[in-house]
Amino acid sequence: MGCYPSKQVKTPGYEEPTVLAAETPFTVSEVEALYELFKKLSSSIIDDGLIHKEEFQLALFKNRNKRNLFADRIFDLFDVKRNGVIEFGEFVRSLGIFHPNAPVEDKIAFAFRLYDLRHTGFIEREELKEMVLALLHESDLILSDDVIEQIVDKTFSDADTKGDGKIDQEEWKAFVLKHPSLIKNMTLPYLKDITIVFPSFVLSSEVEDSE
C-alpha cells in the first residue's frame, strides 16, 4: 500500500474517514469510496473539491441548469453550513441518513425537514400544495385545480390528526409509519455496494504501478 494516498493534498472541507465512519453507518473503506464519488461530483464543472448546486443538478439530471424544487431542498439540507456548497463531511453525514442501516427515525426526520419548505417546524397545507404543483409540473402532468385541491385536502385530513391545519413532527412520524412507502426514497441500496462501484485504491495503485 505505501503511504502515497495520505500524502495527497486534500481539499478544503475534507475530513478523515475514521472520524466520519465513527459518526455514520459507513465503514472507513466505504467513506474512502465515497470520497472517490465526491471527487468526481465536485470536479464536474468547477474543480475545487466542493459540490456546487450546478454540479449537483448535473449529477441528478444530466443537466446543470435544470431547476427542481426537491433537488434544491436536498441540496440545502446537505449544505449544513449554508455556504452554498456541499463539503465532503456534509456529503458523507447527509448520505449516511440514506444508508440502508440508518435509523428509520432519522429518515423520517430528514423527510420532514425536506417538506417543511419555510422552516416553520410544520408542514403546512400551502407547502404541500406547492410541492404537488411542482411535482405535476416536473412530470408534465395536468390535473384540474379541483382535483389538486381534493388530493391535498384528503392527504392533509389524514395526516393532520390534531386538526390544527398543520402537520407537526409527531403527526408526520405516525403518518409515515402508516405509509412506509413515503420514505422509500430515503434509502439508497447503492450505499451498501459503494466500495465495489467506487473502489478507493484504484487511482493510487495505478500511479504506483506507472512509477
Binding site: L41, L60, N68, L95, M131, Y190, V197
Partner: peptide, 26 residues
C-alpha cells in the same frame, strides 16, 4: 386509481429530484 385517493406525499416522493440514485451512475 382515482386522483382523489392519491396520497399527495406519495405523489411528491416520486420526484426525480429526490431520487439520489442517479448520483452513483458512472
Amino acid at each position: 386509481t382515482a386522483p382523489v385517493t392519491m396520497n399527495a406525499f406519495e405523489l411528491i416522493s416520486t420526484s426525480q429530484g429526490l431520487n439520489l440514485s442517479s448520483l452513483f451512475e458512472k
